[in-house]
């Protein structure tokens, strides 16, 4: 069976700065991949390559066996840590917009019955994510958690095959994060979407994923930190692995932090 996503010896370098080196992976549809790693290790870069807003400088990144299109499309949704909703549209409009793009090529705007249909689809989804009471508010009137709920609903209206989440809950309070975890797990089970989610929080990664990736550099050159890139240093199926492995990852991180390497060097 062809995997949904396959990375074959993927490199990404910006000039002399090698960010990712030799990343290999196979991901099947329906998995929930959580990606952890120190900041600057190329997690966002990897997501951007899956999205199509960036491409590998060497190697191949395949979507169902074909090279990933080199621009974003409706089959791959994304939620950024911030700035992913449209400030000039109400909550309801933010979500129905995806349907308007699809059903009204010229004006990107629906009227009459077709508009009411799109809105009722959007309203249903918004109710699922817990925003049914805030349909007519503008994003600036929403809390951080509500904005992320909106961003998630906005992406899911297109029924994407892949949902990319780049530190989506990084800016939220711990209590609200817990609610968001249940929300995203529920939606993942319900829709069967394949999720790639980066996070700073190792525990969050353990808790949510079916599989955890750790991005780290294998080799370090203290004089020239950009000489070597990061790759997937751990690829762990969660729920089945020994707890010792998780302890080991956590211990490695503590060691790195003590050595003064809080970012990816």
């Amino acid at each position: 069976m062809t995997p949904l996503i396959e990375a074959r010896r993927v490199w990404r370098e910006y000039g002399g700065n090698i960010v990712l080196e030799n990343v290999n992976a196979r991901v099947n549809a329906g998995e929930f991949i959580t990606i952890v790693g120190a900041s600057g290790c190329g997690k966002t870069t990897f997501l951007r390559m899956l999205l199509g807003s960036d491409s590998p400088s060497r190697g191949e990144l395949l979507l169902q066996g074909d090279t990933i299109p080199d621009e974003p499309g409706p089959d791959r949704g994304i939620v950024f840590q911030r700035y992913s909703v449209f400030s000039h549209l109400s909550v309801l409009q933010n979500v129905s917009l995806g349907l308007e793009f699809e059903r009204s090529p010229l004006l990107a705007r629906l009227f009459g019955t077709s508009r009411r249909n799109a809105e009722s689809t959007a309203r249903e989804l918004l109710t699922t994510v817990g925003l049914g009471h805030a349909l007519h508010r503008y994003p600036f009137e929403l809390s951080g958690g509500m904005q992320q709920r909106l961003a998630i609903a906005q992406s899911l209206i297109k029924r994407p095959e892949i949902l990319l989440l780049d530190e989506p809950f990084g800016a939220l309070d711990p209590g609200i994060r817990k609610d968001m975890h249940e929300l995203i797990l529920g939606l993942w089970r319900e829709t069967g979407v394949t999720v790639f989610m980066t996070t700073h929080d190792l525990e969050e990664g353990f808790y949510l994923g079916t599989r955890l990736w750790v991005f780290d550099k294998i080799r370090h050159d203290p004089d020239n930190p950009n000489r070597y890139g990061a790759h997937i240093s751990y690829d762990i199926p969660l729920g089945k692995c020994q707890p010792e492995v998780l302890d080991e990852i956590a211990a490695n991180r503590v060691k790195a932090t003590h050595a003064g390497r809080s970012d990816c060097r």
Binding site: E71, P74, R82, F86, K158
Partner: peptide
């Protein structure tokens, strides 16, 4: 991010 977001919505 906003422009990318619009593209992922199919615009």
């Amino acid at each position: 991010e906003i422009l990318i977001k619009a593209q992922t919505l199919g615009a």
